[in-house]
């Protein structure tokens, strides 16, 4: 199983989509803490988690990895949900495009489950309004 290939298959299209916006919106992935605390700058946080790596069968093991994808959009608090929802739409479009991609002969083949959310939250302390969606994924790396 190639975990990095699976991660890249999810991260790259999302990164490209947010980088293509004008102005580009910074995206931070797992184990990156470049976000300065208390900033009012909008940004996107993407967490990819792995739940199961394979599915044993009677005779062998199928390398179908499964996991969750959690996307959080941080926008300025107190200015309504519009900007946050616009950025969420960017993410959802990427996820739906991933599901519409034909199965390749090599590389990573991935399918996503239903998208939960968005849910929104904000606290007194943080300067951001946060929109969150999550979905499940199943992927296999074809040789």
């Amino acid at each position: 199983m190639n975990y990095q290939a699976i991660r890249a298959a999810l991260e790259n299209p999302l990164l490209t989509a947010f980088n293509s916006l004008v102005p580009a919106v910074p995206v931070f992935f797992d184990n990156i803490t470049a976000v300065p605390p208390n900033t009012t700058t909008e940004y996107v946080r993407i967490n990819i988690t792995f739940g199961i790596t394979n599915e044993p069968t009677l005779t062998s093991s199928v390398d179908n990895a499964r996991g969750a994808l959690i996307i959080r959009i941080f926008t300025e608090k107190g200015r309504g949900p519009a900007r946050n929802q616009t950025l969420l739409t960017t993410a959802v479009n990427v996820l739906e495009n991933l599901n519409n991609t034909a199965k390749p002969s090599t590389g990573t083949f991935m399918r996503l489950g239903e998208i939960n959310g968005p849910t929104f939250s904000a606290t007194d302390e943080a300067p951001h309004f946060v929109g969150r969606i999550d979905t499940s994924w199943v992927a296999t790396v074809l040789t």
Partner: peptide, 25 residues
């Protein structure tokens, strides 16, 4: 740990619940 920042500890990774429910377990 950030200089002058808080010293926090976590006993479960971020999004452990979503991973359990959505990740196949």
């Amino acid at each position: 740990k950030q200089k002058g920042g808080t010293d926090n500890r976590s006993t479960a990774p971020l999004d452990w619940y979503t991973t359990y429910v959505r990740g196949g377990k």
